[in-house]
Simulated assay, not measured.
Amino acid sequence: MAVAMASTGSNFGFCSNLKAIEKQPISKAAPLRYFFSLDPVQLSCIIPKRSLSSSASTLIGKATPATVVEGGNSQETDAIPTPIVIIDQDSDLDATIVEITFGDRLGALLDTMNALKNLGLNVVKANVYLDSSGKHNKFAITKASTGRKVDEPELLEAIRLTIINNLIEYHPESSSQLAMGAAFGATPPNEMIDVDIATHIAVHEDGPNRSLLYVEAADRPGLLVDLVKMITDINIAVESGEFDTEGLLAKAKFHVNYRGKALIKPLEQVLANSLRYFLRRPTTEESSF
């Protein structure tokens, strides 16, 4: 999923203060100086069924109560496909692209589109395609207030959690496949990911004016907002990117720069070390005693 953000001149429209919305506790291992501003949108919170601890402030649209699985019945099979939600800010200049995949189990996702509209968004285009991994549902989304793509990390995270909540609501079998299942799903994941093993970070040059940052980590609510905050906290601007939720994992790709230029090697190392320290399990050095 791609996400466009900006802190010193980036596309995310960072402001000098972050408006905290509703504290959303975090789930398991998994989901910057606050420069974001969130347009006033009427959002309703999902109350996690379990108590979690999260540093992210996230509001998500509550799915309407479901009595039937969207698009028909949810056949139970031994192999439950991995749910994938991608938020892409790179492939379209005018809209945020959202892609949802869950094998061949997804229906028309009409309730999901309605939930996105409740966040103050317009679904301007939708299409479905099939390949070997199943049915892919793609939406082009803009903000109703401006007609432009979403550029606030908080709202992008709200979109992500709204979609995942609806996925769990209409396909409860996906709950055990998603990190969010521990937060507001009926069935939490059977096994938790080891955050130390799951965390991978790499920075590569992407031309003279920007670098490409890859982050893979255990997912949890608020992870997208926290990652952008960590990056901008060290004065690195986030231009755009993609944020993928793949089962228990989150995979992010961010285009970043420092004062309009690609990151130099020492700054790449600072960025990687900062994110690694933030994402991995805290440790205490024996020598500190």
Results as ranks from 00 to 15, higher is better:
Asp78Arg: 14
Asp78Trp: 13
Ala79Lys: 15
Thr82Asn: 09
Ile84Cys: 03
Ile84Met: 08
Ile86Phe: 12
Ile87Pro: 00
Ile87Asn: 03
Asp88Thr: 06
Gln89Ile: 01
Asp90His: 07
Ser91Gln: 01
Ser91Asn: 03
Asp94Gly: 03
Asp94Thr: 05
Ala95Ser: 15
Thr96Ala: 06
Ile97Trp: 01
Val98Phe: 05
Val98His: 04
Glu99Val: 08
Ile100Asp: 06
Ile100Cys: 07
Gly103Leu: 03
Gly107Lys: 01
Ala108Gly: 11
Leu110Gly: 07
Leu110Tyr: 06
Leu110Phe: 03
Asp111His: 14
Met113Pro: 00
Met113Tyr: 10
Met113Val: 14
Leu116Glu: 08
Lys117Trp: 02
Asn118Phe: 03
Leu119Phe: 03
Leu121Gln: 08
Asn122Val: 09
Val123Phe: 06
Val123Asp: 09
Val123Met: 04
Val123Cys: 11
Lys125Asn: 15
Leu130Ala: 03
Asp131Val: 13
Asp131Tyr: 11
Asn137Arg: 14
Lys138Ile: 15
Phe139His: 10
Ala140Gln: 11
Thr142Arg: 08
Thr142Lys: 11
Thr142Asn: 12
Thr142Gly: 05
Ala144Asn: 08
Ser145Arg: 12
Lys149Val: 12
Pro153Ser: 04
Glu154Leu: 07
Leu155Glu: 12
Leu156Pro: 00
Glu157Phe: 01
Ala158Gln: 01
Ala158Met: 00
Ile159Glu: 08
Ile159Tyr: 07
Leu161Lys: 04
Leu161Glu: 10
Leu161Cys: 03
Leu161Thr: 13
Leu161Trp: 10
Leu161Pro: 01
Thr162Pro: 04
Ile163Leu: 10
Ile164Asp: 01
Asn165Asp: 14
Asn166Tyr: 09
Ile168His: 06
Tyr170Cys: 01
His171Pro: 00
His171Ser: 02
Glu173Ile: 15
Glu173Gln: 13
Glu173Cys: 01
Ser174Gly: 06
Ser176Tyr: 02
Ser176His: 11
Ser176Ala: 14
